[in-house]
Design a protein around this nucleic acid. Structure first.
Lengths: 365, 365
DNA sequence: CTGTTAGCGCTTTCAA
DNA sequence: TTGAAAGCGCTAACAG
């Protein structure tokens, strides 16, 4: 591997000059600059970022902790973050907690060891181990997503989970539904708890009772949605509508209903959170509340880069709660006894039929 | 950040002893060992892997170059690779070429600069820039996926793309189709070329002519599939069946047909490559030829780790071509004049109705 | 404008 | 069993 020394020798200059050229400080003369550029090409030199990092005291690596890399939500987020990071000379280490929040602390220790310049963190929960670790160890700049981390001087980017679920519940209520089920993630997983609480509050505000047996807290995976929905749909007093707390659960629930021979929305109405790339092709098209992933990802990485560049403690903790958006599909039935054919959606964001490609782009960029 | 020096001072020993304890060389006495362990805990020491990497000449980072991180195919691959890598003490840097093969060389240079221990590389094409770079620069151990890189002493993991497309064509031919279109990726993109050639060969073997105007080489993105299919379907002599060279194209094409008011499979038959997580919920369910992603990812990272641990040049280049599998959906119509209702699928792999969750797992793990 | 040099934190000889 | 010291490749004073 060619080093800066080789370049210097090939160009007949000192390593300081090579370094200066590499870092753009204009202290090098035209002639030398040209010879150095040639030498770099000739010896196939690529700067050793490890040595540079050691010298500088920090790397140009950014750690990104996602809950589940196979969720298209994560993929879209990673893509956005990576794009901005690379444009700024940083690389991204993606760490996948694989749905298990207890893995977060060890992932962070790993990242600490890599001396990453900053971390974009979905903490997933507020486990004791995580809190303890964060309190006891120094951390690089951090931007949290999905869940706030109180007591840590970091930024937070998220959406209002309660409001999001509320939009879903209110939509269903307006369609005449009263017996509404909720499928959410496991207890202790932050967004799952928030969405659960939003559900309870919205139901109460609508004057409806929450049947505890119609609330499942099984997990964010497709299996969970499939099984929980199956259990509810095979009961005598099955719900008329199901709210799913994420995209994967919703798809699992839909599959379960179809497998059991139910029609959607004829027999069961279904509404979920988060967009999926091919939502336009899933039949029936799901009514959803989505998150502006690209905007969120861009803000998160921008804030992180600011923090990395700013002197320690110069930036006060910031937070931005994005507005979720509603997109009506045809997975929910109007079951009011006598009523106009269709109520207006609760949000201004229209859902015209558009090709999946553009919908995908809307989600991914 | 505490360094090895701080630990040494706190323990009243030299840094050499601390290092020895950290690395398990048993040259340190009991007493010293105990004091060092305490000191490490007391100062909250985490080894600086950057310094260690500089000293050792290599990092515990693995670079992974994917074609398009938003393609669920990539997500599943990353997940598998990362899981195995972490279990072996490595971290993964994910680099996204974002569909643009000309970005691969610079990505590799980036990774070289990071002094990654190895690279899992989807070269995407065999561009001059890439070949030149690979010939002229030293590279860490490499395992290529999707496309072989001749002349490089590395391993290769892929599938037989021609055979995969052939399965699709033969399936359609058996259903009585003769006017079959192909939507593939751009010219120069390896898998796209291979799949195109497989298509031509399979058509010839079936005694069918390839209508050049029914072959699109627009790109692997959903937009491409949408537009190309739209153009073909609005012609007078539209095809009776379309073969899509990847999952995203297939979904775009399906959306396009539906938007134009065509029924699938009544008006148009559609078959594609690669599974998608929610394939069970897309209506109609697509007939596809898939790749055993998890197996491929696991082999790739295992081979890479072997190469990283082996002395230079100790392992001869290996390659493994996985068998693609066929999974029948109901997106293809039998248009033979008088015939039995349905032909047997060309492969033994059954496609029973299964919940998306398990299908997802089948794809992702 | 250019070169010399002191470290960044670590591992690893080599002496003691 | 221990410690001193060299040096991985780079950047940034500082000296010329």
């Amino acid at each position: 591997m060619a080093t800066i020394k080789d370049v210097a020798k090939a160009a007949g200059v000192s390593i300081a000059s090579v370094s200066a050229v590499l870092n753009g400080s204009g202290r090098v003369g035209e002639g030398a600059r040209g010879r150095i550029a040639n030498a770099i090409e000739a010896v196939g030199y690529a700067p050793n970022t490890i040595a540079r990092s050691l010298r500088l005291g920090h790397s140009h690596l950014i750690g990104m902790v996602v809950g589940d890399i196979t969720n298209p939500f994560s993929g879209a987020l990673v893509r956005t973050v990576e794009k901005v990071a690379i444009a700024n000379g940083f690389s991204v280490i993606v760490s996948n907690a694989d749905g298990d929040e207890t893995r977060v602390p060890e992932i962070i220790d790993q990242l600490r060891g890599q001396h990453v310049a900053g971390i974009i963190l979905n903490p997933m929960s507020r486990s004791d181990a995580l809190v303890k670790q964060i309190e006891s160890r120094p951390l690089p700049p951090v931007v949290t997503m999905d869940q706030k981390l109180p007591g840590l001087a970091c930024d937070y980017v998220g959406i209002d989970n309660r409001a999001a679920i509320r939009m879903l519940v209110e939509y269903l209520v307006r369609l005449g539904h009263t017996r509404i089920a909720l499928l959410s993630g496991r207890v202790g997983r932050w967004t799952a708890d928030e969405r659960y609480e939003g559900f309870v509050a919205a139901m109460a505000d609508a004057g409806l009772v929450v049947d505890p047996s119609l609330v499942a807290r099984a997990g964010y995976e497709g299996e969970s949605g499939y099984e929980a929905a199956g259990a509810m749909m095979t009961r005598q007093d099955r719900p008329s509508a199901i709210v799913a707390a994420n995209n994967i659960i919703a798809l699992g629930a839909l599959q379960s209903c179809l497998d059991l021979g139910f029609q959607c929305p004829a027999d069961i109405s279904l509404a979920g959170m988060d967009d999926v790339p091919w939502s336009g092709l899933v039949r029936p098209k799901l009514s959803i509340v989505g998150q502006p992933i690209a905007d969120m990802g861009e803000l998160a990485i921008s804030w992180l880069l600011e923090r990395i560049r700013a002197p320690d403690g110069a930036i006060a903790p910031r937070e931005r709660i994005f507005r979720p958006f509603f997109a009506a599909g045809d997975s929910c039935r109007d079951i009011r006894p006598a009523s106009p054919p269709s109520p207006p959606p609760p949000s201004s964001r229209p859902l015209s039929p558009r090709p999946i490609s553009s919908r995908r782009r809307a989600m991914a960029q």
